[in-house]
Design a binder for these strands. Structure first.
Length: 869
RNA sequence: GCCGAAGUGGCGGAACUGGUAGACGCGCUGGACUCAAAAUCCAGUUCUGGAAACAGAGUGUCGGUUCGAUUCCGACCUUCGGCACCA
């Protein structure tokens, strides 16, 4: 059994086979035990695992294995978020069907997962592109239609006029289609939406109960929902003299600052505002339509980024609005800093109290009237804080809050407006004009309109054997697929050919894992496993996915399928995996990125990098920035090669050791070497310990001081590692503590009977502490140490508190806050006694000599600060 | 632009509740073993001065609170994530 050489590949494959043969990680519903559902965000099957996957799934596996050892009934499933744009791109370049490519990737990546030794219950594997999965989300959607929670409205998309297709934001590069190069247009088409805004308030207040979610995520979600209280009111369209137009048209605006309405010096309509074209005067029409056409070219994010604080773009449209508060007309503009999607798509502009309005007013020479008195020394532009109202007639002198109330009451009394809570959150657009997605289960009847596909006709199956050219969706070009009958009146009708946003699949998969094979969307098993105890995924999902996930859980709750308001109790967001970049510049100035695996870095005698050369041709390369691993920068590291070379345990160990999980992880070849060295060292040390034969049982009564010191370290380490894994998620410090203990064990050469018994206890602890991180080598060492029960079924080590008691503590002595001595004192020493001990120290004497002691700060067992003057 | 993070030795990082800055690992330097190399082991390694004891400086920048600040407060700089059709 006890091989002398550590050979990870042989051990890992053998141990993995034992796990498989014993079905070691199969989860069963068991009402008696404490359940623990540990879920990592499911991967998109892009082709091969990358380091980001390895990191994400190792974190999940460590947490799962830890809780399993603590006796909990653990569910850790895995599946595939299999619909999506990359399959269509691959289909174009490889001339395969998206399905073929996707399934091949799944097969390959599943093998890679198995090689990494993750403790998944593969019997629950799900693949979102299969009808047996997506049929249930189609069913849910048809029910939402009937409840009015799914509805259809016109909405803008990126339109490629050459390819005659809709583009994702990602496919628009500098305003042009990625394949055709044509200037992309914004086009309005009818699309399906889910009323997530009905849940805005609940999604907002629910965040307060998510105590174990990162504050950053909760803050981002709060801001995304963007609740604001204010007023909505109407203003009449008029001419420059305040004479209302013939049709008595009204523009409705939302404002959070009705108290500042007396300072309104202009108003703005969003470029997409439906009234814009008709309100614009004949003389201004040409300029306005040019501006609108330009503004609508850019995506929202680009528009907001371009609308810099210095100069805001917009044009006067020739019309005016009557300010109800002053009875005077203000000029009406259209500007790209006003979005149709927020509020009413129209604003009253008050430059005195809003910085964006201030900037616009300055660049368009519009008047500025302050209606809140800034402090006397205020030098800046808009004053957005509190202060007494000025220039505001009957509001003068009131604070912002009081003036707001009075202004709203004034509007309501006159029936001109009302108090209004507005949310930035918008309804979820779920239509995609793409092929590789779940078909939207709707039939369009010339007589009945949009009709949900009846439940007995679901699923609407997406054909998988198609030839995909990339320009049009095969189900849009195939007239036969589309042709059907109206389920209500029986006349010829057509199917919806759009598919769902892939966030639809990833919004409920967590619940489906609980009940594989259920002949409904979910069954009772979901109520046993949910909520998810621990959810793990990338921080890039902080808003969109996690908001839809929380929303969909409420839809499932309202359908009676799950209990509780929130889908996941704890959330951990891991950072990105980054690596050095290296490049060579060719004579024509082109940059050629060199993979880190092909680069050798030269260092000086202090270890500072001097330069780098490319291994394959010996030519110098330039060291670039540290960036997210990507194909474009050629700085990706293939985990498969590392697993082949160092073994799964080593790759897992490095990815957990290099940085805390929520920060970015910097790739380092030598760091992997270090992880490998540590595993070999543990292996050799345990094998050396075993060579001396079996140990006698521990006898705590007869231990020497040194033996007690080792035991104290062992039990301190058990306590620290438990806390680091379960509460702090700082796997890096857990590993550091285990390394520290290992270093002490390597120096502890006590070959006496009790010395060896202490060593045996220590190694049994180390092997269990490391097991969640490096399970293969630990399983092997565990049985080598003489344990007959497999480690995957073993218990987490217990802390012997009596072993942790200290006989001495280090107390730092400071003089005026600077460390001057360190004393070894008995625990619990009082201030006077500690002070007397401190004054015996030569260095402390030197720094206090001839000076008056003004103050003494004593933190028992830690610190004594003597303040002298 | 808006929202959210991060910034500590040559490098990744540690310091958990305001109390020893630099744990652990990498790299580097020196040594042992070796014919030699690799591997392994031992010692050193924030900077400046010093043989040492020790002293001074030091956690992106500037300022503040405190006996004491990597930690709290204010302003700024840089980098990263998200911004609704990448997932």
């Amino acid at each position: 059994m006890s091989e002398k050489i550590y050979s990870p590949a042989e051990i890992e494959l053998r141990i993995q086979q034992i796990w498989a043969e014993n079905d070691a990680f199969r989860a069963h519903e068991d009402a008696a035990g404490e359940k623990y559902y540990c879920l990592s965000m499911l991967p998109y099957p892009s082709g091969a695992l990358h380091m980001g996957h390895v990191r994400n799934y190792t974190i999940g596996d460590v947490i799962s294995r830890y809780h399993r050892m603590c006796g909990r009934n653990v569910l850790q499933p895995m599946g595939w978020d299999a619909f999506g744009l990359p399959a269509e791109n691959a289909a174009i370049s490889n001339d395969t069907a998206p399905a073929t490519w996707t399934y091949a990737n799944i097969e390959h990546m599943k093998a890679q997962f198995k090689r990494l030794g993750f403790a998944y219950d593969w019997s629950r594997e799900l693949t979102t592109c299969k009808p047996e999965y997506y049929r249930w989300e189609q069913l849910m959607f048809t029910r939402l239609m009937k409840q009015g929670l799914a509805y259809r409205k016109d909405s803008e998309v990126n339109w490629d006029p050459v390819d005659q297709t809709v583009l994702a934001n990602e496919q628009v590069i500098d305003g042009r289609g990625w394949r055709s190069g044509a200037l992309v247009e914004r086009k309005s088409i009818p699309q399906w939406f889910l009323r997530i805004t009905d849940y805005a308030e609940e999604l907002l207040t629910g965040l307060d109960k998510l105590e174990a979610w990162p504050d950053a995520v909760k803050t981002m979600q709060r801001n995304w929902i963007g609740r604001s209280e204010g007023a909505e009111f109407c203003m009449t369209v008029c001419d420059e003299n305040g004479v209302p137009d013939a049709a008595n048209r009204q523009v409705t605006v939302f404002t959070t600052r009705p108290d500042t309405a007396f300072g309104m010096t202009y108003a703005v309509l969003a470029p997409e505002h439906p009234m814009l074209a008709t309100v614009t005067t004949h003389e201004r029409a040409a300029e306005v339509s040019t501006f609108v056409a330009e503004a609508r070219l850019a995506s929202e994010a680009d528009r907001l980024a371009e609308a810099s604080s210095e100069r805001k773009r917009g044009v006067f449209i020739g019309a005016y609005l009557l300010n109800p508060f002053t009875g005077k007309p203000v000029p009406l503009y259209t500007a790209d800093y006003v979005l149709m999607a927020y509020g009413k798509g129209a604003i009253m502009a008050v430059p005195g109290q809003d910085q964006r309005d201030w900037d616009f007013a300055v660049s368009h020479n519009l008047p500025i009237v302050r209606t809140v008195q800034p402090p006397a020394d205020w030098q800046g532009g808009a004053w957005t804080e509190d202060g007494p109202a000025i220039n505001s007639a009957w509001l003068n002198g009131l604070s912002v809050i009081a003036a707001k109330e009075k202004a709203i009451a004034w509007l309501e009394q006159r029936g001109m407006g009302e108090r209004k809570v507005n949310y930035r959150l918008r309804d979820w657009g779920v239509s995609r004009q793409r092929y590789w997605g779940c078909p939207i289960p709707v039939i369009y009847c010339p007589q009945c309109g949009a009709v949900p596909v009846p439940e007995d006709q679901l699923p609407v199956v997406l054909p998988e054997s198609v030839s995909f050219t990339g320009v049009q969706s095969p189900i849009k070009t195939d007239p036969d697929w589309r042709k059907t009958m109206c389920p209500q009146c029986g006349v010829a009708a057509e199917r919806e050919t759009d598919t769902f946003d892939t966030f639809m699949e990833s919004s409920w998969y967590y619940a489906r894992y609980c009940c594989p094979g259920a002949e409904s969307q979910l069954d009772e098993r979901a109520k046993y496993w949910l909520p998810v105890d621990q959810y793990i995924g990338g921080i890039e999902h902080a808003i969109l996915h996690l908001m839809y996930f929380r929303f969909y859980h409420r839809l499932l709750r309202n359908a009676g399928l799950v209990e509780g308001d929130e889908p996941a109790i704890r959330l951990l967001c891991q950072g990105m995996v980054v690596a050095d970049t290296y490049y060579q510049q060719t004579q024509d100035g082109a940059v050629r990125w060199i993979n880190p695996a092909d680069v050798e870095v030269k260092r000086d005698s202090r270890g500072k990098p001097l330069g780098a050369v490319r291994r394959s041709d010996g030519k110098p390369v330039t060291i670039g920035a540290v960036e997210k691993m990507s194909k474009s920068k050629n700085n990706g590291v293939d985990p498969q090669r590392l697993v082949d070379h160092y073994g799964a345990d080593c790759v897992r160990l490095f990815s957990m050791f290099a940085s805390p999980p929520d920060q970015s992880l910097e790739w380092s070849d030598s760091g992997v070497e270090g992880a490998s060295r540590f595993l070999r060292r543990v292996w050799t040390l345990v094998m050396t310990h075993l060579e001396a034969g079996p140990c006698v049982p521990l006898d705590l009564a007869v231990l020497s001081q040194e033996q007690r010191d080792i035991r104290r370290l062992v039990h301190n380490t058990v306590a620290k590692v438990s806390d680091d894994i379960s509460r702090r998620y700082t796997f890096n410090t857990a590993i550091a503590a285990i390394m520290e203990l290992t270093n002490h064990l390597a120096r502890f050469e006590d070959q006496s009977e009790q010395g060896r018994a202490v060593t045996q206890e220590a190694w049994l602890a180390v092997v269990r502490l490391m097991n969640p991180i490096t399970p293969h080598i630990c399983e092997e060492l565990w049985s080598a140490l003489g344990e007959s029960k497999p480690l995957y079924a073993a218990c987490w080590p217990e802390v012997d508190e009596s072993a942790r008691v200290r006989s001495q503590v280090t107390v730092v002595v400071q003089v005026n806050g600077k460390v001057r001595a360190r004393l070894e004192l008995e625990p619990g020493m009082e201030q006077d006694k500690a002070m007397a001990m401190a004054l015996r120290d030569g260095n402390v004497q030197r720094h206090t000599a001839g000076k008056e002691v003004r103050k003494i700060i004593h933190v028992p067992d830690r610190l004594l600060n003597i303040v002298v003057g």
